[in-house]
Design a protein around this nucleic acid. Structure first.
Lengths: 237, 237
DNA sequence: CGCGCAATTGAGTCGACTCAACGTTGGTGG
DNA sequence: CCACCAACGTTGAGTCGACTCAATTGCGCG
């Protein structure tokens, strides 16, 4: 739960009272099994969801059956804060692992936004940082070679997980399959596998047993052309 | 100028008074020549920019020299509304054609956001729709075949331009080069050229003389798997 | 122990890329 | 008014990367 507060206050500060208000947004919790849909596409909803534990993604499946993941979500992340204003989701939110999810009714957000301008700004900022990550993914998908693209994802997830306290030294748990990574990076499974092998051989990073270990952080960032500014984490390094 | 109001009220309504407030956000105007930088990357700024005429883009240039366009901007579009909260831009805003740009000081936005909750919501919504477009681009870049990707862009620009009244029947001016299109779609110039030729041969759409003509709207949308929901245009068709 | 899912590896194909040349067009200055 | 230039668009040829198909290995769990 406190991951949510940490996440919402990533780049800014909230008073104790305001933090309590953020916690109060979550009125109850639900459990979702791996490979289940947390939020279906195309239906009107009146609440947003927050990942309290586990990994989920936003995804779209095309007619040909291929899948594109547009966002990976970890503890503290809103799955669909934008549904607060937009109401219908065009993409579905999908539980990659078992997930504990916090339910945030839109009327709670309404209340907080009206009463707490600071939190309102912070929530707006939250969605802007989300957008910033999307733009960086567009750059990755469009122009980064696949090795660099994977390196970039590994760098990004390292900092995002670190920000909520979920890394151990230079390792972190990333309980997704290589197929999931492929669907995020727009590559084939086989190619992802071979490129992960290259990252390992070049002693940059290893993805094994659903966990990432970074061997050479400086070089990994260089290969990825990773500039963490876009995450707007004021607290890390 | 009224394109801005039209654009901000895309999916919602504002009273006459509120519309006037939106107009008042623009304190003055500047002209930018084609191929000049409207907003440089990496500097702190205290104003946002709005395209009043012309076409601009948000772009990032990697060390290898390749360019990725993350957004195409037309009349009425904010170039960098998010800089209001985030202050530094990681990408630059670039004038593709000569552009007339409206300057919106952040303190003006502050004032309006404090006094006009309706407009504040509308501006937040604006950034959320932007994000929605980013997600759709991620899907395009990641998983749509290039023919479908181009078709999707043509569909999107058609509706966006139509929303601000800049289409003539099934044609619209799109004063960009094939290189610009390539840098938006993550493809090579040669491949873009050949794929545009295929779109023409298959009588779906023609891009020539900096203008697009759609020959078969239904089929074009089918090829693109285009679902306009993500644009959240409540007014079109 | 064996089933099933995930990861890995090999082989062959095709798409997308680069390099390079040529055509076209619009603007500019003699 | 025309010749030239530069930028953009088009086309051909050859290469390489990324894909698919398919088979095998590794591993966690019932």
């Amino acid at each position: 739960m406190d991951h949510l507060v940490t996440r919402v206050t990533w780049s800014g500060t909230l008073s104790e009272r305001e933090q309590a208000q953020v916690r109060r947004l979550v009125t109850h919790r639900r459990l979702f099994a791996a490979n289940s849909e947390i939020v279906p596409a195309g239906v009107r909803i009146d609440f947003s969801s927050v990942i309290l534990s586990g990994v989920s993604c936003r995804q779209k499946i095309l007619n040909s059956g291929v899948r594109q993941i547009t966002a990976l979500q970890i503890s503290g992340d809103f799955c669909d804060l934008h549904s607060y204003m937009v109401k219908t989701m065009e993409e579905s939110v999908f539980a990659i692992t078992d997930c504990e999810v916090g339910i945030v009714p839109h009327k709670e957000i309404d209340r907080v936004v009206e009463q707490e301008p600071n939190i309102a700004r912070q929530l707006w900022l939250y969605t802007l940082i989300d957008a910033s990550i999307y733009r960086e993914w567009i750059v990755s998908l469009g122009r980064r070679p696949v090795l660099s693209r994977l390196a970039h994802l590994i760098c990004e997830m390292y900092l995002r997980l670190k920000a909520v306290g979920l890394v151990n030294g230079m390792s972190y748990s990333l309980p997704v399959t290589q197929q999931d990574i492929s669907d995020a990076m727009g590559t084939s499974l086989v190619h992802t596998n071979r490129t992960l092998a290259r990252l390992r051989q070049e002693r940059l990073a290893t993805f094994a047993n659903r966990a990432v270990t970074i061997h050479n952080w400086a070089e990994l960032q260089r290969v990825a052309e990773f500039d963490p500014t876009y995450l707007h984490l004021h607290l890390v390094e």
